[in-house]
Each structure stands twice: as structure tokens, then as C-alpha cells.
Amino acid sequence: MEELMQTLKGQIVEQLNLQHIKPEDIGDDQPLFIEGLGLDSIDALELIVLLQQKYGIKLANPSEGPTVFKTVRSIAEYITAHKAA
């Protein structure tokens, strides 16, 4: 899980063009949207693309988005659960 979260942080920075942020500056449990990293709705779509491209996972239910993309840890947990499935 730890390794996956570190990988995810790098991928998020790259996919979302967060050139002003270092991957290591993103906390495992830091909120990604609004008050946390400040991501917006377009970033949410990019995260869906990231899941598809890098992990072959399609977000089956879009209403799950806010829960899945809440933090790096929640994304990693979702990937772990769905890759194993």
C-alpha cells in the first residue's frame, strides 16, 4: 500500500500538471479537493483517466468519485480492491 501511494502521488502530479507541488508534499490522508490540494472537477476527470490508463480500472459508478478520490490513500485502497477483484 505504501509503495502504491508513493507511485500514485507521482502520477497525480504528472497527470494533473501540478508542477508547483512535489509528490512527497502530498499527504497520504490530505484531502485532494477544495480545501486540501485544491483540485477541481476537471482534475477529477483526469483522475478517472489515470485509473483507466495506469491501472485498467474503470470507475463503474461516477457517484463513487467523491469517496474514491478523497485522498491518495482512498484511491490506493480502491485500486487494491479492484485489481484484486
Partner: peptide, 10 residues
């Protein structure tokens, strides 16, 4: 061709 990029589209 691979995955349409929302951030490019806008």
C-alpha cells in the same frame, strides 16, 4: 487515440 484528456479538451 488513447484516452481523451479532459484537461486538454477544456
Amino acid at each position: 487515440a488513447t484516452a481523451p484528456s479532459p484537461s486538454l479538451f477544456v
